[in-house]
Write a protein that binds this DNA or RNA. Structure first.
Lengths: 203, 203
DNA sequence: GACCATACGGAACGCGCGCCCCGTTTTGCA
DNA sequence: TGCAAAACGGGGCGCGCGTTCCGTATGGTC
């Protein structure tokens, strides 16, 4: 329990201070390799493949992350954090409608580029389906909710939808875009689906 | 090559005529068990599990279907055929708009009930991703296209979408509904997403 | 420069699962 | 009823992959 530097809180702060130099370097390499590999293939990449790309042995990976899933979660946590940052930045913008729709599209696009993000978003929705990055999803949902509320306040999004709907629509858009991957321009389905969020002209 | 009664054309016609009685019975049992098991768990159910449910040995399954995937395809083919039937029936109806939207919703609902259908629909979209039920998907797309064309002719669906868009939206809806599975009533997301297919009031 | 804790690497283990093999049973025809 | 062909069943093989183990190399300290 006191072995792995992964579970304690001294993980996010940055570089895990008290650690031998090569260990810190290898940890970074593993993380980088995992990011790349998970992005391309999702959770299904063999762990040995990640080790190879990182130029280390499988044992080394396990010394830094207790399990393959833990490594996956670390990658996801980082990606999610970036999304949340993005959301908060945009929330300060001038045009709430544009902020919301741009963030929505941006998120879908990142999910298209990173298979791991797809899988995390899809899994995060399920009720009791594994939710690895515990608080991470909550933070994302909060950020999305904030943008949504502002957009609704500005009349850019209809009032009878909530974060749950939008989150589901987002996951749906990822599916759609993947379906038409190279037969339609990027964002085509997002644009189509987002129409359903805009207020109807006449009631 | 002359061993399996699966690859030749004498497969779809119904009950594979020249076959020992027990063989025919077992084949039916396997198919039924597979339908149930694939519906619940998708392609990931162990083949042994299907054999157990059917009350036969694994060898028996392989005598009737050369591969696990072949069995999967057989199940999918049957489900797809039902969908196509459904589409053709509705195409004869009076209200093209209702026919289209009802078929759309019905398809999503069936996909929610059968994980295999989800997987088949999702896989069928990709360009070079395996497309097991070769012509089956085409037939489905054709049926959907027929309903779409009629609905557009009646002004119930906007003219600037085509079958590819609709098919993608359909797959997206399956994702969305799964996301909100037990936190929203059935069809909630479908209703939302379908709004984007309706013509805008004013231009 | 020497020493020991720390970290490394990759061989090895266990497990799940698709698929095959072959001794045994069943079927249907003569 | 007898017999050959057809079908059965489930044990077993091979493989991929997550995880562990341990002999070896390396880094930081005295």
């Amino acid at each position: 329990m006191a072995k792995q530097p992964a579970s304690p809180s001294a993980d996010a702060p940055g570089k895990t201070p008290s650690m031998r130099a090569d260990a810190r370097r290898n940890r970074a390499r593993v993380l980088a390799a995992a990011q790349e590999a998970f992005a391309a293939e999702g959770l299904s990449v063999p762990l040995d493949e990640i080790a190879r790309r990182a130029g280390v042995g499988a044992g080394t990976v396990y010394r830094h992350f207790p399990t393959k899933e833990a490594l996956f979660e670390a990658v996801i946590a980082e990606r999610m954090a970036k999304l949340v940052d993005d959301a908060q930045t945009r929330a300060g913008g001038e045009d709430p409608g544009a902020a919301f729709f741009e963030f929505f599209a941006e998120t879908v696009e990142r999910a298209m580029l990173n298979k791991d993000l797809c899988e995390a978003l899809e899994a995060g929705g399920g009720p009791k389906l594994k939710e690895p990055p515990a608080g991470t999803h909550q933070a994302f949902t909060d950020g999305l909710g904030e943008l949504l509320a502002r957009a609704q306040g500005a009349g850019a999004v209809r009032d009878d939808v909530d974060v749950v709907d939008v989150r589901a629509l987002l996951v749906g858009c990822v599916s759609m875009e993947r379906q038409v991957r190279d037969v339609r321009p990027h964002g085509h389905m997002v644009a189509l689906a987002c129409d359903s969020l805009r207020p109807r002209r006449a009631e």
